[in-house]
Amino acid sequence: MYIIKNIDIYAPAALGRKDILVGGTQILAIEESLEALVSSLPRGRVRVIDGSGSIAIPGLVDNHLHITGGGGEGGFTSRTPEMEFSRIAAAGVTSVVGTLGTDASTRSMNNLLAKVKALREQGISAWCYSGNYQLPLRTVTGNLTDDIVLIEEIIGAGEVAIADHRSSQPSPAELTRLASQARVGGLLSGKAGTLNIHVGAGTEGISLLEEAVAGSEIPRTQFVPTHMGRDQALLNQGISWALAGGYVDFTACTVQQFLDEGEIRCSSALNMLLDNGVPLDRISFSSDAGGSLPDFNEQGEYQGMTVGSCTSLLDEVRLAVHVEGLDLPTALAPVTENPAKRLKLQGKGRLQAGNDADLVILDQQSLKPLQVFARGTLISEGGADS
């Protein structure tokens, strides 16, 4: 049992300076003072943490990352390794949703599902999507709906690629069919059942999604396009999509070359979307960690890569506050409450009594992680290097 005293709480809403009681896997209480409770408990029963000069935030929810590794576009030696639990935890991430990517030949859904189970055993909450870039999707049971209904850890489908030379060039009808299968799976199992869409650098952007929605009864909330900050044109499409009621996800991992070529950081994109009237709850960030950041020339030839990291999520939170001038509750929502609510991850994304005790203690000035708790267990101390 832990009591964290005198800490400024962002749930992500600002709650002021309070005490937090953690017992078992849950937050038991958040009160102005728990001093009386502390004094009533037997010595040694509770560990008291002084939160002075610190901030408590919800554990981060990373809704799109490659926990079994990614890459491979440059041949076998360019395959990236499986992600390590310690690196995820040190980045303040306590809930993850894994996905396959380009390579579903040397990586499999069975491998992905096993990694999800391993991360759960190590102490964080983990789920995954069923599928990959290309159609037909690689699934566990042979049927997307069955995967979502029958396998607890599978909560949706993806990442299916569009506007990318590595995709299978799907039609609007094919995307609609997949979204329908995922939706039915979600309805039958009480899960989100969304279709995670990788949006590549093609000039068509998300026009296929607009066609799929216009030509069917599937609501646009069933599709979640990610990598929406590739350039200003795609961001503008994302603004229109979100204003019409859809969700948009932005990728925190990037490199300077991509920024020089026009990619827009999550923190900057957040400011732009809010300025254009997009509701905050429509916006999320994900790291794309574990996957490669491949560089292709104009002929589509592989030039090299960098590997994404979970630390990019808190990097973007800090930039949103220190550079973009946004308040901390606004900067935190896309990596906590918003993805948790969209994906129906019960007990996640908010600091409140009864929720899972997933929380991160940050230094008040630098906003860097000092301690990370997942389901009431201290899983990391000292933070991670960006």
Rank of each mutant, 00 (worst) to 15 (best):
G16V: 12
I20V: 14
E32A: 10
E35R: 14
A36Q: 11
S40Y: 07
L41A: 07
L41N: 00
R43F: 11
D50M: 10
I57N: 13
G59Q: 04
I67R: 05
I67S: 08
T68K: 03
G72H: 02
G74R: 04
F76S: 14
S78D: 05
I88T: 07
A89R: 03
T94R: 05
S105Q: 12
S108P: 02
N110E: 13
N111T: 09
A114M: 10
K115H: 12
S125L: 10
C128L: 10
Y133L: 01
I155H: 01
A157S: 15
L175G: 00
S180N: 12
R183N: 12
K191Y: 01
T194V: 15
N196Y: 00
I197E: 00
A201K: 13
G202H: 05
E204Q: 13
R220S: 07
M228V: 06
M228T: 00
Q232H: 04
L234Q: 00
I239S: 08
I239R: 07
S240N: 12
A242N: 03
A242K: 11
A244W: 02
G246I: 06
Y247D: 02
R265C: 06
L270D: 04
L270F: 10
D275V: 05
P279W: 03
D281E: 12
R282C: 03
N297F: 04
Q299K: 14
Q299W: 13
E301F: 08
M305N: 05
V307E: 02
V307Q: 06
S309I: 04
E316C: 01
R318I: 03
R318F: 01
H322Q: 08
L326C: 01
L328M: 00
T330E: 00
N338A: 14
L359P: 10
V360M: 14
V360N: 13
D363M: 12
Q365S: 04
V372H: 02
F373Y: 11
I379K: 11
